[in-house]
Design a protein around this nucleic acid. Structure first.
Lengths: 328, 328
DNA sequence: TTGTACGCGTTATCAG
DNA sequence: CTGATAACGCGTACAA
């Protein structure tokens, strides 16, 4: 059953023609091809069960029809939504997406970028950790097709980026809390290493400032997920407990909900909650939580389109696209 | 800025050695290599910014270090959990996973299988639609590494498969309903085209039979998602409304919950619910729903391990692994 | 219309 | 220890 790989040469031999003729046939250039040779080739291919080897073709053509997506955190629902949109787009153009998970680790990110480039993928869409500046710069300068997604890289780099209006959306959400009479508003966030979190915090602070409310650092909880419970414990043991809470992303939200359940703190009564992130099944909940939703599919499509343009060599100057979120 | 691709030949020239020597260096075979040549090569690589081309290597070695995962439905949370486990496993072995979404469409599945094989991926893990028997057979007979996941393919094929104990788990769940006194138990499912759904239905029927309850076909709702609401409407307008409901997977579950919300039917009071599927954030809900959870990560790891064994040519006879689910 | 010869960037073999 | 030389499977001028 060994069934040795059958190559173009085998087909040519079986059909009694040369390799180039077979190649012509495969690439549908049968304008100048005899009807009889065409049929012979067709038959030979069928009987031998020939399958072209795209690897060899890619080597020659310098295109693999693969693109890479490097997400910072694959358990982040928003990232998977974006990835699916990107995949859908490229599927229509016969390119395949390879999704890699950098786990918010700059080293891993570096490894993946290098690996995917070594494997000659045609372009990259990256949710950057932000810590590999030289690498980003290198790609851009070499004219390698790349689009950054969700998080900012250094301003100095002239690149295509897709972002959300983090600061503005947060500002409006917090404003809403204030309008409802809340004065003690907490902000819960993972470590402030990436632009999204910083921008959201910025929106929170500005909203308080503009409303003349003093910013109380004790209401700002910054922690890694494992430490979050302890910090929340402290937050809710203050004399002036928060009456409203802004969770800066889905992980923070989950930590908060688990904590509240444990402490039997009632949502809507003791505490109001707004979450910045897309949450699966959110519409099934009937708890009084507001969500700030990012238009993941649109963002994904846009990124894909921009990358595709670069791959197709359509010259266009890099630009930053900011998408508005909406609150539900 | 053009920065033409620098190849091994360039490095060799710059270092004043031959390509083969550079190749040796890259593959860390410097046992018999002069210290000075080693340094010259190292320097040349650095100054030229040389990056090996894995494509060319793959062509020669007949291994790409890519494996493919073809999921039937990528919006299915269970599938993504499994996929992540597979990715994690292969990442440890320096292989990358390419995830493709067949959308439960046999044509798409066929296209992906052919495409991935043409691109010479080293092996495939497939959530099969079940409709491409010849293709499956072909792979198996050619000794191509492949593992089937979640759904059965025809018995006649001697292949590695990973399954859940669909029938047994459903049996037990329905039994639980019966023990609680329920007599009118509905079963809601998408079209019965795949083994998982059929097996679950089988469990439902057996449980009723064994309890001496007659099977009422009107309580079995089989519909595509778009039609499901209409059919549920009919189900709940029967004189004898169901007091318990078994949702055969996540999509069915969502349709049911949306319907219930609309009709203001209270879970726990008017109706009890069991869902066969892993649902994200399920533990955050405090509604009285039971879930049958499949051990996605374990299943993914097992599949990965089995595929890896085949890729590494460890001979082992194909086997079917059935994992137990658990109810929470 | 078809065939020859070479290139794509590596690795494997084997002689020196 | 190092270097020719021939693969790997396909695409493509160019010649016939």
């Amino acid at each position: 059953m060994g069934m040795e790989k059958v190559t173009m040469a085998d087909v040519a031999r079986a059909a009694g023609v040369s390799k180039s003729t077979v190649s012509q046939y495969l690439n549908k250039r049968y304008e100048y091809m005899g009807e009889k040779t065409r049929q012979k080739i067709e038959e030979a291919i069928k009987t031998l069960g020939y399958q072209p080897n795209f690897l060899a073709r890619s080597l020659k053509q310098k295109r693999t029809s693969f693109i890479g997506i490097i997400v910072a955190n694959i358990t982040h629902y928003f990232s998977t939504e974006v990835s699916r949109a990107i995949e859908d787009f490229f599927h229509q153009h016969d390119l395949q997406a390879i999704v890699c998970n950098a786990d918010d680790d700059p080293e891993k990110e570096k490894k993946y970028i290098e690996m995917l480039r070594a494997k000659q993928v045609d372009g990259l869409i990256i949710f950057p950790t932000g810590q590999n500046h030289d690498l980003y710069k290198n790609m851009v300068e070499q004219g390698y097709p790349v689009v950054f997604m969700d998080r900012k890289v250094e301003e100095s780099l002239n690149v295509f980026s897709i972002l959300t209006d983090n600061t503005e959306s947060t500002y409006k959400a917090v404003q809403r809390f204030i309008d409802k009479g809340h004065k003690h508003i907490a902000f819960v966030v993972q470590p402030l290493r990436v632009s999204t979190r910083l921008d959201r915090l910025e929106g929170y602070k500005r909203a308080l400032n503009d409303a003349g409310i003093e910013i109380n650092p004790d209401y700002i909880v910054e922690a890694d997920i494992p430490d979050m419970k302890a910090k929340l414990e402290r937050l809710f043991s203050m004399e002036l407990k928060p009456t409203a809470l802004f969770a800066a992303n889905d992980r923070a939200f989950m930590a908060v909900v688990e904590f509240l359940k444990e402490k039997k703190i009632q949502l809507g009564e003791d505490l109001e909650l707004i979450v910045f992130d897309n949450i699966p099944f959110a519409h099934l909940l009937d708890t009084p939580i507001s969500f700030i939703i990012q238009p993941a599919r649109e963002m994904g499509f846009k990124a894909a389109e921009l990358l595709y343009g670069q791959i197709k060599q359509e010259d266009r100057t890099p630009e930053v696209f900011v998408f508005p979120s909406k609150m539900i």
